[in-house]
């Protein structure tokens, strides 16, 4: 199993541990990740409204590089996934657009014929790799670990471009947690937004939203959370203390990256999982259940 690997900007800077642990986990599982050394930014929706064609062309350039490598793309960022899936859908649906975009790509010696698939690490594990195969690889089941799944937005919506999981009642994270031997604690906030987009404009509302997501996870009995999106992780982890101050309650809710809970069940150590980079220490959530 081989993919062109596209970590996205957040996982190369602020959440480096998500990128490095994904590589380690995939090495153990036998999923080969080839770096796309010359890939560009997906645009993250920041230029879509400014110059639609440019945003599609930028994405087509990424697909063209993957096509040259003869591989499908795997990303670990939900926003990259959504932006790329949407662009890919339009390129496949509108041959005229594809033709126009290819004219621009030609200047760089690239061509996209529309045959690349974009997938997320969670989808890869759930579908392409398979949960049965993953179960056979588990060395240290996450016994009694009460994990609240948190999907966020862009791995689910807009479902007409993504379509892997149900946008309202997704189950892939729960199934993955159970495969790893943990207790999945479904909570009503699992598909609601963490407020990442409005941290700057109104930190107060954003912190409110973060507090709500943490509270929903805690009320459902979760002792920690897992998120497939690096941006949700930034928000839930780094603004947790602010949310505690504002709502006058203690959450102590460590948030794991998807790769970290998989790595934990595969028997990787706390150092290997780089858990020290989190602001809310996840170590208590682990040692109390798994032992060492």
């Amino acid at each position: 199993m081989k993919y062109a690997y596209y970590p996205g900007c957040a996982s190369q800077t602020i959440t480096k541990e998500y990128d490095s642990t994904t590589k380690k986990v995939c090495k153990i599982l036998g999923i080969e990740l080839l770096e796309m050394t010359d890939a560009n930014c997906c645009g993250a929706g920041l230029i879509t409204d400014y110059n639609y064609e440019l945003s599609i062309t930028l994405n087509a350039r990424i697909f063209a590089i993957a096509e040259k490598m003869g591989l499908d793309i795997m990303t670990i960022c939900s926003t990259c996934l959504m932006i790329m899936s949407r662009a890919n859908k339009e390129l496949k649906e509108f041959p005229k657009l594809l033709k126009k975009v290819n004219k621009t790509l030609e200047k760089a010696g690239l061509h996209y014929s529309g045959n690349v698939k974009v997938t997320h690490f969670l989808w890869t594990l759930s579908q392409d790799y398979g949960l049965d195969k993953l179960k056979a690889m588990v060395k240290k089941p996450l016994k009694d670990m009460k994990i609240a799944p948190y999907y966020g937005c862009h791995i689910l919506r807009p479902s007409n471009a993504l379509g892997f999981d149900d946008p309202e009642k997704p189950v892939s994270l729960e199934r993955l947690i159970e495969t790893l031997g943990g207790d999945a604690m479904p909570n009503e906030g699992k598909t609601r937004c963490c407020g990442f987009q409005i941290v700057l404009v109104t930190q107060e509302t954003a912190v409110d939203m973060i507090g709500n997501r943490l509270k929903e996870a805690k009320d459902a009995g979760g002792k920690c959370m897992v998120s497939p999106c690096p941006l949700c992780h930034i928000n839930l982890d780094s603004y947790q203390r602010e949310a505690e101050k504002k709502t006058h309650q203690k959450f102590e809710m460590p948030v794991f990256h998807l790769s970290q809970i998989v790595g934990l069940a595969l028997g990787m150590s706390i150092d290997e999982l780089e858990l020290g980079r989190h602001l809310v220490s996840p170590e208590n959530a682990i040692t109390t259940v798994v032992g060492d």
Partner: peptide, 13 residues
Amino acid sequence: MWLCVGCLQCYCR
């Protein structure tokens, strides 16, 4: 308009 987080829940429902 400034508070919309672009989570697309509205569109989805």
